[in-house]
Design a protein around this nucleic acid. Structure first.
Lengths: 168, 168
DNA sequence: CATTTTATGTCAGCCTTGTTGACATTCCAA
DNA sequence: TTGGAATGTCAACAAGGCTGACATAAAATG
């Protein structure tokens, strides 16, 4: 039943069987639920959603980033992002400053309140990640990241790498 | 700046720094986009969504599963699932059979057409997973799954494990 | 300088997929 | 026989995607 389309006939490639691949797929599905569960609970209390979390996260990571840059990281339309940004700005979590060099651009910053929310969300998310990392050890963590990085689209990997360059 | 809340003061735990954890978080975010990108394109052509993919995937994995079981795997409300199932049944992708033992239950099966869609979607998703796995090698794959499994909520891990038991 | 392009905002409307609440039906089980 | 479980269905609503259209300001280009 299993392994019809990609029988490797090679023991060294047994991790590429359809069963192994499906296992990876389902692991991603169930793990992503866990990955978002803790922030989701916090957000729900404050009647925000994942979209707000994403915006706040990346503004925190790249203070002063422009709307356009955020759009390309998040991969949504400006209308969609705008709705989320608007509520964050109106609620005083995000500060939008007109660019000095190019006055069409808006540069986005977290306010103190915004930074507090970001900290609360990312602490919750880091706690789970830390528990998982601690449980499995550093070698597994390296493998984890290698697979994830190999699974990204090129433009997403570009953003991912760029974020690393800025801070590490 | 980095590592304020969890400075380990221990080189062996450097993979638990806030920077490393954030790296894992962002890797999850960007990789999940890639993970869903290919199926999403196929689904969009047929005017289905991810919800349909999920339903079709798990019905394929556990033919004859009940609506209630599917609900607990997917973690949505019956009304939400029902809407998706209805379109799949109406479109002839899913067969819903009244239980013989308990006639209140509906047992769900993919029709031939449903199985074709499932195959198309999972082939696309496996292709990306296979490319990533092949690129990084079996040790990384083991680590990848260890971290994901450690990150799951307990009830999700239960479902994940149960699926493995049935087929492997 | 005139024109075009870019960056952004905003309005309106639509879709999917999630939610809650209410209520009907069927039927197993105590 | 009655209570509760499994399911279906209707209605309403919200978040957060999407498209299209249009306005504005400013940069870039001819």
């Amino acid at each position: 039943m299993a392994d019809t389309s990609t029988a490797p006939g090679n023991e060294a490639l047994l991790f590429l069987t359809d069963d192994q691949l499906r296992k990876g797929i389902e692991a991603m599905f169930f793990a992503y639920r866990g990955f978002t569960a803790d922030p989701d609970r916090i957000l729900a209390e404050k009647s925000y959603g994942r979209a707000h979390h994403r915006a706040v996260h990346f503004i925190n990571r790249s203070p002063g980033t422009t709307v356009n840059n955020l759009l390309s990281i998040l991969g949504v339309t400006k209308q969609s992002l705008n709705r989320v940004l608007r509520t964050l700005i109106d609620d005083g979590l995000v500060d939008s400053r007109i660019g000095t060099k190019d006055k069409r651009e808006r540069h986005l910053f977290l306010t103190e309140t915004g930074a507090e929310l970001e900290a609360e969300l990312s602490t919750a998310q880091r706690n789970r990640m830390r528990a998982a990392f601690r449980q499995v050890g550093p070698d597994a963590v390296i493998g984890f990241r290698q697979v994830l990085e190999a699974m990204m689209d090129n433009d997403m990997r570009r953003h991912y790498t760029r974020l690393r360059e800025a801070t590490e």
